[in-house]
Computed example of a mutant assay.
Amino acid sequence: MTPHAGSVDHKPVALVERAPEERSMWDIPRTERDDPFQFGQRYLEDENAVWDHNAWDHVKWDEEQDALAKEKIAKQRENPVSTFDKNLYMSTPARYWDLFYRNNKANFFKDRKWLQLEFPSIYQRATQADSGPKTILEVGCGAGNTMFPILAANKNPQLKIFGVDFSHRAVEIVRESEEFDPKYTVADVWDLADESGALPVGLTEHSVDFIILIFVFSALAPGQWETAVQNMDRLLKPGGEILFRDYGRYDMAQLRFRSGRLLEDSFYVRGDGTRVYFFTEEELNTIFGKKFEVERIGTDRRLLVNRKRKLKMFRIWLQGKFIKPIS
């Protein structure tokens, strides 16, 4: 169920290597600091230099940009999705994801080779030769662009990677890939918000060390969030981690939506029928904080520029790490 990975899932810039005295920042609780992640190292200090590069990291979000974003959202609210169409999109979401993956084959997507920079704990604790038995569950595995890079870097003979997706076609693409290795990988259909209590095939309660959610949670309707969190709580071992990356409020993709696309506040339907939500840090803290320890939440705000056309485009992503309490 990984949404539109080829068009919106851009490669993050490498994290800055911090001096020893700065690394203690990572141990400060979320409420005591504003910058839990450090995304990239290209800062726009001189506005006249904005066209010198294609992208700038950690850009400032000023009052003018905030007002413009709110103006666009207000216009979207004037003409939301019709009641008939909303019922259609909300009742058959799997149909649209199957169509998406039928229309976009595996070569449409790019492998997430940046995973070691963004989520190093996977490689430190699960893929080393001496890591021991470890289980990784990727929810919304799409075409395998997360699980296959992890598998390629794996040295652990006792690692198992489960890839699950809402779309039957996505699972077929993963199983048909030359990189799919049944010794280490399993792919199956599973709905993160399944209310029946069914778990992914091959998994039992409290058996997973890592759950990966990359551009997946945004595809759920807000009314499904609580069930999804409960299902992850049942799957994770005490001390297990949820690694999260998704769309942030006022991201360029949100502001580009025209009339007739708004389902609910911050929740939209794309032209292909797939759905997407745009989060705030506060929402993530509330959603995941009910069951898990919120170790980190950060906003990756980036300015992309089209130097030829002199256009500025703001991308906003949220990243988080949530831990299941040991007690």
Rank of each mutant, 00 (worst) to 15 (best):
G6K: 13
W61I: 14
S91I: 01
M252H: 15
A129S: 13
D130S: 10
M90R: 12
D46M: 07
G248R: 12
Y101A: 02
L117M: 02
V81T: 14
I28C: 05
G144K: 07
R102K: 05
L151F: 06
R261Q: 10
I212T: 04
K60A: 03
L88C: 10
I136P: 05
F84N: 06
T185H: 01
I242Q: 15
G260W: 13
N154V: 06
L15E: 13
V171P: 01
S259R: 14
H10A: 08
A5L: 09
Q158P: 00
F257L: 12
F108G: 00
L304K: 02
H168A: 08
P20A: 14
N107G: 01
L243W: 14
R42V: 00
S24A: 12
H58K: 10
E295R: 13
E63R: 13
Y250T: 09
G260Q: 12
T286R: 14
S167M: 02
R33P: 01
P157V: 02
R30D: 15
K11M: 09
V229G: 11
N231M: 12
I297P: 00
N104L: 03
K11N: 12
E178I: 00
V305C: 09
N48P: 03
Y89D: 07
D98C: 05
I161V: 14
A253E: 15
P133H: 10
F292A: 04
N104E: 03
W51T: 04
L304S: 01
P3D: 08
V186C: 00
L220S: 07
K75L: 15
F217E: 05
F257W: 15
F215G: 03
D233V: 07
E281K: 15
G248N: 11
Q128K: 14
F292E: 06
D46V: 11
G202M: 04
G273K: 14
D165C: 06
R95K: 13
L243T: 12
R245C: 03
R258G: 15
L44W: 04
P80R: 12
E47D: 11
F210S: 03
D46Y: 10
L115F: 05
Y247I: 05
G144S: 04
E178V: 01
S131R: 06
A67Q: 14
N306I: 04
N285Q: 14
D57Q: 09
Y277M: 11
P80M: 13
N306M: 07
H53P: 00
A55M: 10
L88F: 13
W56V: 01
G202R: 06
A74I: 05
A153D: 08
R256P: 05
H4A: 11
D111P: 04
N145K: 06
G260V: 12
R309D: 09
P3G: 07
R261H: 15
V164R: 08
L15K: 14
L99A: 13
K86W: 08
T83I: 12
Q158H: 11
P3S: 13
M147R: 08
D46I: 07
I28N: 08
V216N: 13
M313T: 05
E32C: 09
D265G: 09
T185P: 00
K134M: 11
